[in-house]
Design a protein around this nucleic acid. Sequence first.
DNA 1: ATGTCAATGTTGCATTGA
Length: 259
Amino acid sequence: MRIATWNVNSITARLPRLLAWLESSGTDVLCIQETKTTEEAFPTDALAELGYESAVRATGRWNGVAIVSRVGLADVVGGLPGGPEYDGVEEPRAISATCGPVRVWSVYVPNGREVGHPHFAYKLQWLKALRDAVADDAAGDRPFAVLGDYNIAPHDSDVWDPTAFIGATHVTPEEREALAALRATGLDDVVPRPLKYDQPFTYWDYRQLGFPKNRGMRIDLVYGNDPFRSAVSDAYVDREERKGKGASDHAPVVTDLTV
DNA sequence: ATGTCAATGTTGCATTGA
């Protein structure tokens, strides 16, 4: 079984590449972030033609998450129970479902914008709520994983130049401690292998030749429990999908399971 | 093969977020 996560940066803009990639990669379950569309405008029909069911949590211009599966899609829960609001709005950043033998979450963790910004406090609150919401499944016997754009680089080696991130979000002790608290529920990082270079970056800024210069970050993560990790046979970042015209600024992270 | 991209409102550019 092949499970992947991909921040597509608008499913509308990415649809041709998304459909082609699903077919060429043979992905069974894809966790999607930044759909940037309404649930009504989500391309449910186009995905159904390829044999995928869709579960979507989205409200429009910003954020939006989905899970698409060709191995079953049951017990869908939209949103993050107990999660904080931002500016009085519950943003669409989480959805979970059971796909065959595996339960998965697709998450788009708040960016944080700047250290000290209200969005940064919101990011930490959101991660705390996520930890509480997944604790039972993380400790369970069923393969379980939280996949998505965490907007955190777990280690200094997960950014192209740590000195370029001094004082920035995505690398602070507070954010990394929030990840550690999430791992303490029984989850751990399924680190993918890179297809080129040494570091498995998943995101490269569109600006300033980020991708050609390999100025990347590993911020799209797969956090699985013991039964999930025991079933992992391979994991890699499909950097080929970051190339060329019409690419997202994130590459898919692909995980193969023997279930 | 690469010196942003995408959605939306203030609409054919400016604004916002990433």
